[in-house]
Design a protein around this nucleic acid. Structure first.
Lengths: 175, 175
DNA sequence: CTTCCACATGTCGTTGCCGACATGTCGAAG
DNA sequence: CTTCGACATGTCGGCAACGACATGTGGAAG
């Protein structure tokens, strides 16, 4: 039930269409919670039926913008405050690490080099984004400050992963 | 298709039953790739049909132990070497962070305190485990060395998350 | 000798989630 | 005036994943 709360959370910022929300998901929320448009439209329909959101306006090209209701806002707040999150982080590269012993040492080292490079890249992207936010390039709304925290998490996690992959590459070469 | 490769990887260490694999998943693999027994038994059936594994022995209480075949070993190696992993890390606590602005500052600070404590706890657990491995308490097989790397990743990621949550808690209190 | 727990394997119904397919509109560029 | 790309919403079939239910066994403790 995380998708529905993700949608409610985004709609708490203001009205948006399924199309808008799909883009927000692929651009900002995607890295921690992927969702494609079929899911999103289906869930919006359900949320509307349950009265947690409602159609705010209908525009050109069949556009339907949804607005969060008081019930919806209460629900997303309840989710944030009362429920404790499933803490499992589903991450395929770490699943692979259990089976590194099945690779030849040179294959493994090469794999880890590629891995660390791509994590480093991501870490840099998030770090740059964080610095842009600190320079005030995105204003200072509460939403922006939450995003600042999310970006910081991204930067720290990918830095940790890049360091880890480098450590592991070195270790795999040393024997 | 990660579960099937996870199962093949575990079976590469030696024969095991569905029950064994279920426990290995909930004890070691679960934190990065959760799987419950209905999925596991179903997937084992499919893998056997495709000839990637085969029944090695049948024991008491209907126990069926599976063994990886040459085709299965080739498949898991192919997965490790040739395919590049989906790098999305699905993590609900970070999804929530996008919506922190919907919480009252004191609620948020309390939430982040709890969060950092639990990450710190996990980090310590992994760090202890890593040190036990370095003292040689689990031998020095290739499998153990892969596990050592996986554990290191866990320790580093949860340390990063604990630091992040502390940083965020402090930041949320400062305004 | 019974009771209880860990062992052990499965089915079933529901929801989550995705790729592919389908359809149509508006505006801008050529 | 046509064509193309971004906008926009949806359906459908299928696999993934999970919780609940079902069933039975072997050994150990009382």
């Amino acid at each position: 039930m995380s998708l529905r709360h993700g949608l409610l959370g985004l709609l708490a910022e203001g009205p948006a269409s399924g199309y808008d929300l799909t883009r927000r998901f692929e651009e900002v929320v995607g890295p921690v919670w992927p969702a494609k448009h079929p899911q999103i439209y289906a869930e919006l329909g359900r949320l509307a039926t349950e009265g947690l959101i409602k159609v705010e306006s209908e525009g050109a090209r069949g556009r339907k913008a949804y607005e969060i209701t008081d019930a919806g806002l209460a629900e997303v707040r309840r989710w944030l405050v009362d429920t404790n999150p499933g803490q499992a982080l589903r991450f395929e590269p770490l699943l692979r690490s259990f089976f590194f012993w099945l690779m030849e040492p040179d294959e493994l080292a090469a794999h880890l080099d590629r891995e660390s490079a791509s994590y480093r890249q991501l870490a840099t992207t998030y770090r740059d984004y964080a610095e842009a936010k600190d320079r005030g390039e995105f204003g200072s709304s509460p939403q922006t400050q939450s995003l600042r925290m999310a970006v910081e998490a991204g930067a720290r996690i990918y830095t940790a992963l890049a360091d880890w992959a480098e450590w592991a590459a070195e270790r795999s070469r040393k024997q």
